[in-house]
Every structure is written in structure tokens, then in C-alpha cells.
Nucleic acid binder design. Structure first.
Lengths: 149, 149
DNA sequence: TTGACTACCATAAATTCCCATGCTATCCCA
DNA sequence: TGGGATAGCATGGGAATTTATGGTAGTCAA
């Protein structure tokens, strides 16, 4: 489970500390870290090797010529298997730095099965957007249902 | 089940004792504690890891582009897996301290499957509000029905 | 031989762990 | 039934560990 949010610094070598709780989550299951371009947002998505494998398997299930299959393959193409240094830091590939508009700060946002890496500005946007939706539409249906039961 | 209310002190390190009865409830089922921003109130909500896992699983079931999925992911980002010290104390993350307006006192309020942590002032507000509704509208229908049966 | 990349070392700050203390509720026996 | 012993809980403090981050030396390829 990837949870919580934290703001870490990216140095001149594009190195950044992965939050300790995320690292523990990976080590616990002996998984490697995969980083790739988010399909929905201007951010990097990080996940476990095994979860990535399920995406790959999903492609085989799809119509090989479908748009979905096409998109998933493009996603794979910009995926990177990432190694940690002894202090729990990783180097973010240039392609991903540019894609997410990252510079010298990264916001790590755990979302359960994976996590996002945002630029501070983009993170702020998304956070405000969520507050707006919450105000206008209220909490998710699922959440309300579960609570009453 | 989390029941009853208690007032505990938050020290300078943002540590606070979780009421013993809540702790027993977690230990009994070997669950870890998750704290997150309430979606409805200006307070922290506490729940079990397994309950949080059901929300996470739900995200995969939802339309990934929907508002509900978006809000649930944001909820994960504002959730923290919390460890106890040997005395049953936890550290409340800064983000949650600020969100709930907590300072040096916390009111724990069990509500069944989860519990709330309020600032004393906010708790007082909510309590008065509930008393007012009770006076004007009487007890909830659900409650009356249960009692008669 | 220069530039990029990797592996490792160093350090300050933050966090965690554990021991100690005081309080309160409970128990037990005279 | 009263009063002291006991156990569990809430809280304070400080030592030990971990984390985030800066830096350097070694390595490989162009």
C-alpha cells in the first residue's frame, strides 16, 4: 500500500529520495520499482514490477489493434526499471523529468497500488481541483455507502 | 468496534496516546492503524488497514477517469499508516495536525468501524450541533426502529 | 581524456524507540 | 469495609536510529 504525501528535493544529478514508507513497501515484497508516464496526468507514476506485469498481461487480453492496446504499449515504451542507491535514492530519467515538468522539487503522492510524482505546481492544481469537486459533489458514493453499512 | 469518547494530550512531538480500548480493537485483529483527513468534517479519521484496503481495491473497479476515482486517490494521498510506540502512543503527521486544527489536546470519538480525532473546539461545535438537531427533530428513525423491535 | 554515470561516504535533522514517572482504577486481605 | 498493594494507562524525556541530502572517488564509453 502506497499512502501519504511528501515533498522531496531533486538534486543536480536528478537524484531524489523515495519516501521511506514507499521503500519499505517495495522491500517487504521484494519488488523492484517501475517509473512511467502517467496516462492521465502530467506526472510520473511509480509502481511495483508485479503490478506492471498485470498491465502487460492485460494487453494480451485486449484486441491487439484497439486503442487501449496501443496506449498501453506506448506506456510500456516509456517505462523504466529503477535502481536505488544505498541511501534509498533514485535517478529520474530525463524523459520523465521533462514529461512531468520536474525541476528541483518533487511531490510524492501515494494512491494505494501505485504513486504519483508531481511538480509542486501541478500537484497544487490537482489538489485544488479535488477540493472543488468534493465541495460541489460531496464524497464518493462508495465511501458513503460503506460508512452507513 | 470503536466506541466511547476520551480527551488526551498531544505533546510537543505531536505524540498522543490512542485510547486503550481502541488499541485493543486493532491488536485483536492484528491490524495496523490508518489516519486520514475526514472527507466530511474538519477532523482526522482513524480506521483499520483492511478497511482502507477495500477503498484501494475499489479504485481499480471504478472508471479510472471518474470523479470518484480521483477523490479516492486524493484520499489515499492524505492517509498515513501509523505505528505505535511501546506505550500505545502515535505521532500525528503535521499535515493532519494542521487540517484538523489540532494543538495540544485531542478528542477521540469512536463511531463503530472508525473513529474521529477532533480539536476540543471543533468537537464542542459538533456536539452542540447534534444536541440542537436532537431537540428539534428527535432521535433518528433508525434508532427508534431498532429499539422497538 | 573528458563527460556522464554509478557506487559509496558524510552529516545534520528528524524520527523512533525505550526507560522513567505519576495517576487512577482495581483487587485483595485483614 | 477500609486501606494498602498492584496493574494498567497517560505522559515526559533522552538516547539511538533512520532519513534526506550533499559530496567524492571510481568506472565505463565516446
Amino acid at each position: 500500500m502506497f499512502l501519504s504525501t511528501s515533498h522531496n528535493k531533486i538534486d543536480l544529478k536528478c537524484r531524489v529520495s523515495i519516501p521511506a514508507s514507499f521503500r519499505v513497501n517495495l522491500e517487504k515484497t521484494n519488488e523492484t520499482l517501475i517509473l512511467f508516464k502517467s496516462l492521465q496526468f502530467k506526472c510520473i507514476e511509480g509502481t511495483t514490477s508485479s503490478r506492471m506485469q498485470t498491465y502487460i498481461n492485460a494487453i494480451d487480453e485486449l484486441d491487439a489493434l484497439s486503442d487501449d492496446a496501443f496506449l498501453l504499449r506506448m506506456m510500456m515504451a516509456d517505462s523504466f526499471e529503477i535502481k536505488f542507491d544505498i541511501n534509498g535514492r533514485v535517478v529520474i530519467p530525463d524523459i520523465l523529468m521533462n514529461f512531468a515538468g520536474l525541476n528541483n522539487k518533487a511531490v510524492f503522492m501515494g494512491i494505494g497500488g501505485s504513486f504519483y510524482i508531481w511538480s509542486p505546481a501541478e500537484y497544487e492544481n490537482q489538489y485544488l481541483k479535488s477540493q472543488k469537486i468534493l465541495k460541489e459533489k460531496g464524497p464518493p458514493k462508495l465511501f458513503i455507502k460503506k460508512k452507513i453499512e
